[in-house]
């Protein structure tokens, strides 16, 4: 089963490279190395996702024209509750949001079903995104198409993750969360915030702060939290069962 998927993906891949060999009028500001991206896609993504001519939904949704698409909107694909909620909230796949998602899927969509632990290397992600971008609308065809040039400086600084938070401060700050989010982990209408891995929590708060995650209340709440305050909240939440 797996082998067959891989083979079909490789066929699609060959078609892809054949049509867009990676050079052309937009090559002046490339996102990354699309050829390397094609290999990464074949190795790490194609077991579940198809891309290219004739791509269909498999374990994951097909990824043609993913740039500019609203999250959770591929017809006929059954998404997780979390991904559907993000789509309704207005998450759109752009270079920035895809980059954050591929880096750490749960930082952007907490309850995603995508069982992929993330691609930490920024250059590798750039390559993969360059390849994904080949199969979305082209600026020369549609002027409003997503950019083909990479935004810079959006990767979470490891120094931010290294901050040791003050759990007492975090406990006070967390009282602002519990006006809406319940400590017992209820997930009706408003997502649960308990039992998050620390790193995912920090990444998620920064994703709201950077407005990669779309929700207006959370963008406002996280938007005024300093790096230390986010670390404090993370330190407090890890003390909960």
């Amino acid at each position: 089963m797996r082998r067959r998927h891989l083979l079909s993906a490789l066929v699609l891949l060959a078609v892809g490279v054949g049509i867009w060999p990676g050079a052309g009028p937009v090559a002046a500001a490339p996102i990354g190395d699309a050829e390397r991206g094609a290999l990464l896609f074949a190795r790490q993504c194609s077991a579940c996702h198809q891309l290219g001519k004739g791509a269909v939904n498999r374990v994951g949704p097909q990824l043609n024209r993913v740039f500019g698409r609203t999250a959770g909107s591929v017809e006929g694909y059954k998404y997780s509750k979390s991904m559907a909620r993000m789509g309704s909230d207005g998450l759109v796949w752009t270079l920035d949001t895809l980059d954050a998602y591929v880096e750490n899927p749960r930082s952007l969509v907490s309850g995603t079903r995508m069982a992929y632990r993330g691609m930490k290397d920024a250059e590798a992600r750039s390559a993969l995104l360059a390849y994904l971008r080949e199969w979305s609308d082209k600026p020369q065809n549609i002027p409003e198409a997503e950019p083909t040039a990479r935004a810079s400086g959006l990767v979470l600084d490891p120094a931010i993750l290294a901050i040791q938070g003050d759990p007492d401060f975090g406990e006070y700050l967390s009282s602002e969360c519990t006006t809406c989010h319940q400590r017992d982990g209820s997930d009706q209408g408003i997502p649960a915030i308990t039992r998050w891995p620390t790193e995912d929590f920090v990444a998620a708060m920064h994703a709201y702060k950077r407005k990669l995650r779309p929700h207006p209340v959370m963008q406002m709440m996280a938007g005024r939290l300093s790096d230390e305050e986010i670390a404090a909240l993370a330190a407090y939440f890890t003390t909960l069962d």
Partner: peptide, 8 residues
């Protein structure tokens, strides 16, 4: 969800 959260 907010009503359930704030009343709790």
């Amino acid at each position: 969800g907010w009503y359930a959260g704030i009343t709790a």
